[in-house]
Nucleic acid binder design. Structure first.
Lengths: 338, 338
DNA sequence: CGTTAGCACTCTCCTCTAATGAGTGCCAAC
DNA sequence: GTTGGCACTCATTAGAGGAGAGTGCTAACG
């Protein structure tokens, strides 16, 4: 639909804008990127492309700014190229390895590292917890029918929640139930256990059936969120960017970051893709994200259940960001095995 | 050292500046606060007070701005007055009560609530965990000598960390050790258990002495930080304040907030006082806080081991902030008992 | 001697104006 | 289809002038 030259112009304008932060004019594009065509030619093309929805002008006598549609073209073209890992990769890998062990502390560190390296907000999430091996399940009586449900997953990941059981049981009985559930559950991911457990509970634990049933429901709730553990870091770095000089934009992002659920939803929604997923400006459903982009990369780490991501301005350096994200995601593998 | 009138002037200038955000001039003070004295008189006094370090001028022909020293006087005078609980107290208490149970989720909500109500950054911290009753101690074998140490405290508070034990023990042995330690520890705070446990370990568990010793050391580490659990919320609200129009200031605060340790240190340092503790501008040791104030209030909630706090501009409405902090701190009591 | 009125002075802030310059749209020529 | 030329638009910047707030100082008053 676009001619070769039109495509080149779109990509050049996006690239130029990403580099300089200024609207790109026909003269600049002609001089720096399409030396074969004169400014006037570019000008005509640009007018057409604006009509087609790739550009807009902040005011009549300014250069062109790319729309989400143009960024989309740009990102798609980047994705087809090979990316070279950034030079600092080795250093980052070392930094991560030297961190104190534990999935959570590593991911928290990684999110900050991502933020610092890209000047975006870094994110690291554990997704699909029901695919991770269960190590242990415990109930701790808190008083009355309130009980603490404690699930330890592979690699020392702890999830817990306060629940209400249908009746007040002693700690001994709770321990007994936990032991029986553990017999079935331990060493297997919840997704495999769920069905088996229902049968088992029905057959072997009739006397405390209500309690067990509720316990299973609660474990299910706890592990069934696709994204159950989210680390966000390096938020202060976006303030370095000229795109976030506007207090209103900062506030939009900050308020979004405080709603952990929204972010988790986004991660869940877009991380179903196998590879890198980039959601640009308008493509986001969240109002606060209309000026921003979201980049997500599933990581090899932790049994392929980790997602790394960035939230940054629509005008982010996608090439660099994606390269960094991929490099760190790759490295996470080794660090999280331990 | 200050005459009655001088004190009145200092308090008036601080009050006026907090209300309006503008430097206060002699005329304004004379008209609004000290009707008995003329502007010229106030002017003379103000020049003296400036020399004494209570005021400064942003430029020659502007009114006076209060220094930290003046704020200190103002806050001290507030602290002597009775404060009336804000009207929204009832609503807040209800909101907190309706939240899903669990210390952590409540404190997280409270920190956001504080932020929203005061336009400052809200904080809620659990301090002195070694004073909180232990409910259960567990070790979960992660592989090799890596072990997950899990401590459940009163009210469903879970603390855990990955540790390395001196040798590789089976889960059964670990469970056995955990059971023995629990016998001594459960139902008592760690501070009371620490000594007793050392003796007990020495006498009854010779065969796994090394392991037990290490375990005790690690539990000690885990619980011995005075402030071990910190929730920060509502950061986006400070952007509403005119004091934070400067991106640099926002960045200073944000970067401070990301270093959980620094905040924990501050909370620990100042929360040893019994009552409300206010640290104003220069009085802070952290460079990033020189333009900000920190207000901390120990809460009745959770066995008096909770600290609520605010980080806001030096020019915050201390009277309102402290009243809100105290009201919520008071209410937390009921909510956290459950 | 403390208090007050008066006055000159300073400095910020706002508005208005003019100049600059980047970039466009369009037209006519190649 | 491409290009050079030209008029036009609009944001940005700098400078000038005036208004307003507030001070410091001085001299007079009780």
């Amino acid at each position: 639909m676009l001619t070769e030259r039109q495509l080149e112009i779109v990509l050049s304008v996006v690239y130029e804008y990403i580099q300089t932060g200024e609207p790109a004019g026909s003269r600049t594009i002609s001089k720096k990127y399409l030396r074969g065509s004169s400014a006037a030619t570019i000008r005509n093309e640009m007018a057409d492309l604006e009509e087609m929805g790739y550009f807009y002008q902040p005011h009549t006598s300014a250069g062109r700014l790319p729309t989400s549609k143009a960024y989309r073209l740009y990102v798609d073209s980047i994705m087809q190229r090979r990316r070279t890992a950034p030079a600092e990769t080795e250093q980052w890998a070392k930094d991560i390895r030297e961190r104190k062990v534990g999935v959570e502390s590593i991911l928290s560190y990684v999110s900050e590292l991502l933020g610092k390296a890209t000047n975006c907000v870094g994110m690291a999430a554990l997704s699909a917890l029901d695919e991770v091996e269960i190590q242990r399940i415990n109930f701790v009586r808190l008083g009355g029918s309130a009980v603490l449900l404690l699930v330890v997953l592979d690699a020392g990941l702890v999830h817990h929640t306060n629940i209400q059981l249908p009746c007040d049981l002693s700690q001994d009985v709770l321990d007994d139930i936990a032991r029986k559930i553990s017999t079935v559950a331990c060493g297997r991911p919840w997704s495999q256990v769920r069905g088996a457990l229902a049968t088992y509970v029905l057959s072997g634990l009739e006397d405390v059936w209500d309690t067990c049933r509720e316990a299973v429901v609660q474990i299910d709730l706890l592990l069934n969120h696709k994204t159950s553990r989210l680390f966000v870091g390096g938020a202060q770095h976006i303030l370095n960017l000229p795109d976030f000089q506007d207090i209103g934009k900062i506030q939009a992002v900050l308020s979004l970051l405080e709603q952990e659920n929204s972010i988790a939803d986004m991660v869940e929604r877009y991380s179903i893709n196998q590879g890198v997923s980039v959601t640009i400006g308008d493509e986001n459903t969240e109002e606060e994200m209309k000026d921003c982009s979201l980049v997500l990369v599933p990581s090899a780490g932790y049994g392929r259940r980790t997602v790394l991501g960035l939230i940054g301005p629509q005008r982010m350096d996608y090439e660099k960001s994606i390269a960094i994200l991929e490099a760190i995601a790759e490295n996470l593998n080794d660090s999280l095995v331990q």
